[in-house]
Design a protein around this nucleic acid. Structure first.
Lengths: 301, 301
DNA sequence: GCGTCCATGCAGGGACGCTACATCGTCACG
DNA sequence: CGTGACGATGTAGCGTCCCTGCATGGACGC
């Protein structure tokens, strides 16, 4: 039983298909298919079953994939055991973050890591739907993701480790000349019938606006759906609507006014997601420590 | 980092050399050497160091070998996870036992396992020095070993699992016409100046006789050193000396008389030794359960 | 019903790992 | 102190395994 094949099976499970898994593993779909087939012959139990034109893991496949996590963890732990004897931990760490999180955290993170010799950071900004963050952990070492404050956690079960970084309040962004711009806070009632600019359906913190509006007793009037907060900011500035924007990331600017919400809790949680096996790498731990420290400074500021 | 290479390194550690490890793994010494060398390049730390004409693991090597155990365990657990979905556990289990333990346990064990379809037992009797029992676990799934009652446990650390089976008293074996033959028990003082037949130095329970004699205040007079208990029995029967023989294994015979010792605790512990990764196999667990049940019957009888 | 996408089988090629052999160093024996 | 044997380690050669490329079959959507 090969650890590589186990990893392949696991990826097929998380990525939901042979082709997607092949892309992550830098292989051809054919190779992935053959590995799984070989594994199946070895254990004598069907591991995958076709569903439509894709496929999905059988219960036995799920069980094996779960066990594969422990194998990967053990292997990484072995590597780490040797690194302890190396005077200097070394390696590259791939970090991914959603756009505004990247803007908030990555510059300072890179600065901090520059002081540490030997660790190379490869940063990427990835804006994906809420449910797709966990799948990124197959390609990345650390995935900075966000979710509604009140929402439930992340899928992925035991395979992914969730490290809470910080909670960022979402404020109401209004034009500088807006009637609410002078207020020190607004209540849900103040927001009735305002034209909202929201994020696209299924994307992070999409549900927050609905929750806020529910407190005012009516559904929000959504006039635009824009994912990029800078575009949102520009639209708000030009008077095309109001929106919810994260305080730490957009509070400093002078283009729009951020007014805190009172009477309702609106915010997003920013977490670091990473696979349990990746978490065993010393360099990854190191980056994670810095990231957590950095987030702590922002949160208490 | 290959799980196979890790296993190889571990074996080099336990077997204490490339050649011995190669024999266990069914490889040539060259292949083992190359695997270790490759592993070394990968981690960038020396894993082995030459000592005389052999070699030994460096601290880093030991650490990696220890981690290799967890990898092997995780892999076996993965296999077991699939076997759960198989209706019938199946496979061969290699069992090794020292001579008298084999005589005591193996026939009944085989009878019990015959009732279970699919599990094939391969039994071997291995009489090795006390310190060499653990090394057998590399070749065997289950090793039945014995040690002095009062002695310390087994070496091998976390890598080997010890399952206590039973404690067997050691009685004084005397000829049928010996002055002590009629006694219901003997005390250490009764044993002064008797001609003893002991096992060879370094072999299991060799230390027990010394402990018993120490209670009588004098060193035992050892006239012969014989490992095979049947030979010992024949020698005792012919009046060439007395000896310590295990009660359950030799108490039933009519060739010599076994007299219990009083005033001193003399016995041997019979344990099952197995590698932690092997212990994850369902069929191995099954055999172990039967073995333990069987030993329990003997112990309470 | 056709095009597209996805999983899968088959043949070819490359890379990796093992065997066999030679070398060097170390320990036992005369 | 030289000689023989044992053990570890490189090198060449070969076999094997695995991956790529291509073709096939099935399923969904327009």
């Amino acid at each position: 039983m090969d650890a590589r094949a186990l990893e392949t099976l696991r990826t097929v499970g998380t990525q939901g298909g042979v082709t997607a898994a092949a892309a992550v593993l830098h292989l051809t779909p054919s190779a992935v298919s053959q590995q799984v087939a070989l594994l199946q012959r070895e254990v004598g139990v069907p591991l995958t079953e076709r569903v439509g034109r894709g496929l999905r893991l059988t219960p036995a496949g799920e069980a094996l994939a779960e066990a594969a996590v422990d194998v990967a963890v053990a292997l990484e732990r072995a590597r780490a055991a040797c690194d302890e004897f190396l005077e200097r931990p070394q390696g590259v760490v791939r970090v991914s973050a959603f756009q505004s999180g990247a803007q908030l955290l990555l510059p300072a993170l890179l600065t901090r890591m520059e002081a540490i010799e030997g660790i190379t950071l490869e940063c990427t900004d990835e804006d994906v739907a809420q449910d797709d963050f966990v799948a990124l952990t197959d390609r990345m070492d650390v995935v900075v993701a966000h979710r509604p404050d009140d929402g439930l956690g992340w899928a992925g079960g035991r395979a992914v480790q969730v490290v809470p970084l910080l909670r960022e309040p979402l404020d109401v962004a209004v034009p500088l000349d807006h009637p609410l711009a002078g207020r020190s806070e607004v209540r849900p009632d103040d927001l009735r019938d305002l034209p909202w600019i929201a994020v696209r359906e299924g994307f992070p913190v999409a549900t927050v606006l609905g929750a806020v509006a529910a407190r005012s007793g009516s559904a929000p009037r959504i006039v635009h759906r824009v994912n990029d907060f800078h575009v949102v900011e520009a639209l708000v500035e030009a008077g095309h609507g109001v929106s919810l924007l994260p305080r730490y990331t957009f509070g400093g600017g002078a283009r729009v006014r951020l007014v805190p919400l009172a009477g309702v809790r609106a915010g997003r949680r920013i977490d670091a997601l990473l696979r349990r096996d990746r978490a065993e790498r010393l360099v990854v731990r190191r980056v994670l420590d810095e990231l957590r420290a950095l987030a702590g400074e922002i949160d208490t500021a």
